[in-house]
Write a protein that binds this DNA or RNA. Sequence first.
RNA 1: GGGGAAGUGGCGGAAUGGCAGACGCAGCCGCCUCAAAAGCGGCCGAGGCAACUCAUGUGGGUUCGACUCCCACCUUCCCCACCA
Length: 825
Amino acid sequence: MLLMYDFKSVELRWQTRWEREHLYRTADESAKPKYYTMEMWPYPSGDLHVGHAKNYTLGDVIARMMRMLGYNVLHPMGWDAFGLPAENAAIDRGIDPAVWTAENILNMRRQIRLMGTGYDWSREIATCEPEYYRWNQWLFLRLFESGLAYKREAPVNWCPHDRTVLANEQVIDGRCWRCDHLVERRNLSQWFLRITAYADRLLEDLANLSGWPERTRTMQRNWIGRSEGANVAFAVDGMDESIEVFTTRLDTLYGATFLALAPEHRLVGPLKRTVSNERATAIDDFVESLKSKTELERTSLMEKQGVFTGAHAINPLSRERIPIWLTNYVLAEYGSGAVMGVPAHDERDFEFAKKQGLPIAEVIVPLNGESNEPLHAAYVEDGRLIASDDFSEMSSERAREAIAERLTAIGAGGKSVGYKLRDWLISRQRYWGTPIPIVHCPHCGEVAVPDDELPILLPPRERISGEGSPLASIPEFIETVCPKCGEKAKRESDTMDTFFESSWYYLRYLDPHNDGLPWASPRADRWMNVDQYIGGAEHTVLHLLYSRFFYKYFHDRGWVSGSDEPFARLFHQGLVLHDGEKMSKSRGNVVGIDQTAEQIGVDAMRLFLLYVTPPEETSNWNEEGISGRVRLLGRIWRACEPHFDAIRESRHPELSAPPGAESKDEKALLRAVHVVAKSAIDETMSRRFHYNTTIAKLDELVNLMTASSEPTPVMFYAVRSLPILIAPFAPHIAEELWERLGHTTSVHLERYLEPEERALAIEEITLVVQVNGKVRARIAAAVGVSEDEALALALADPNVRAHLNGKELRKRIYVPDKLLNLVAA
RNA sequence: GGGGAAGUGGCGGAAUGGCAGACGCAGCCGCCUCAAAAGCGGCCGAGGCAACUCAUGUGGGUUCGACUCCCACCUUCCCCACCA
């Protein structure tokens, strides 16, 4: 794989020049239309590999294309720098996470530049800097003021060994990912953001996000999980309490034969006090047995279990007295944590009732059918009601309405909407995150830290033990006075989930040095929304949903205007495998940026990543495939090199209008130049980004250019155009060629080549002649050949005649300049 | 169990209702060379001497014409998963 140019020195030289000349700095004021494009920022974990390069290369090509098409392009980069890996590295190696993070940022910034990307580095931000997390705290306080940030007890994953909560992702098979101890569920007081208040808007506005992949919208829709149903209140027999349940099948109310409660239900305690000691012990045992189980284990991996509380509830309509059970299959965090058990018409309740010997009461039968008794399985379809007082004979649909009305009338429930979406738990008992700016005062309660005291700085920490809540163990941090009453008080020791930072960073890029506000609204007015956002599909729900929530809140506060969605268009790039396998440190098959730049150069890397697959597909890195792109770069160089001197000495290195082409070859060459330009522009403007097809057309152009070295005007034109055509894709060799042709300014400041109809036009077409839909002849014809002329040409063809074979011509279909289909019988 | 995406040569892929396999990788043949590398030129879905026939996961359908649109099925991958 030998190149005719020294890619390493070429790439280094131009990267240095770009940086020195601040080539990619974006002006806030411009007469050009704005285009805001960004890739999801990286976590500074150490080294970048070619998988990162696929993401940043795609974003870079789009930014460069739009810049060359006359847009004022904003293309920023920053660091999602808080989080667990830094903290764990600090625990393992006994170093300060700030130092570890800063070193990684330094290295990764170098590697991102090494890829030849054009970012406006003057806007670089990192979440672990006080200048950034100060505004995290400021935004938290606004949410707190608005009642959208609140603290409450909630069941969380708790590792008794490490004495800290864990994210769901950090619980593997019910055990702590670090120490392998069994994880418990604990009720702990935690900070939440009330994202559920925006559930309906987050759901409804998905319909307008036409620039988002359908599957992403579907997944968000499912995650929000809106379902329409009803609440029903069951009075507890002998107690001044009632149990509320949520159901989407109100029509089955008369079939409820028991109530099922989650072990965490608020009435478990009160109910226990009304029953015998024996029963109370059984309840305790049951609750205790589930305590150490995660929700996953409890709901998916275990069989349905339960214990009878000894208490009964009254069905508000039938007045039937039904037993109250505790079960493992009811989720405490969904609905009210209690369901009515209708075994005849719900598979889960059927399974549970069979196991516990509970009665099964059939109340729905097929519309035109009869009872299915005895039931061997739950009948879950809609149908006709039976054994349901005056609702009997109604359809399920009608009964749901009628029963809801009756419940409302007697004050025992009514229509209601349930969501799977739960409030966002943002508390972390961790060190390396944004401190939550709240003071706990024994007299005043939870008190907001005044704005002028921000930021609450993260205290320096050279050593972290990994046990317990790090901030809680630092008295200098915790001990403070109440901002309201001045008495002794304690600071909140939790830090924020790092998704908080990434929910608004696209706004900070617009105004990164503002020390009075997170961003100034006029900046947002000018730049938002993000025109194109690019990142992995793994963030489909979390980051992209949280960002939408934040942006809607900002919109409600009047801090941003226009649309209340942050990302107009979204693109998920596919993974990069290495010889068909996922890249991982343990496999030892990670293809790093440094080694790639060293061995083949980053222009070749970029071309390969763009060429091997459409960007949304999974691509496969393999050495053989790359050699094709390395060869292409060599051929590009050899196509241009013979003409450097002649073009430079002509003293007219700038592009003029395409020259007139005389011969067939010249016309083909001229056309090939414009075909590349058209493809590059079409793929960009259509937001399809299938630059693999553009580069295939570039291959064809270069094949034509290397076929001859005749110094014709068309050849000169092609050589002069080539650096512009390839500038977005292979920015270094483009710049080098451009300079060798006699230019003194950067090729990246040029306008992209405008495709011209005259150059793209073809004079001769291949007319495909079909007989009864099968191709029987291919005839060369002039563009614009008339149907009659085409018919005459076709009928003159012996093969066509043979297939017509004297049959009657019934019909003919003519597609101008393409095809003539003769239908005969 | 629910939802989503996708199935085209030895491989990556192109073609989104009109010439299936552009472009590239691998392979084969040749040129250049003392030789090799690099480079350059040619061949490259299957069957058939050929005219042709078959071929885009499988089976149907719509159409003058289907990789493309519709229905059913099979397979793979991804996401969610006892959500009442």
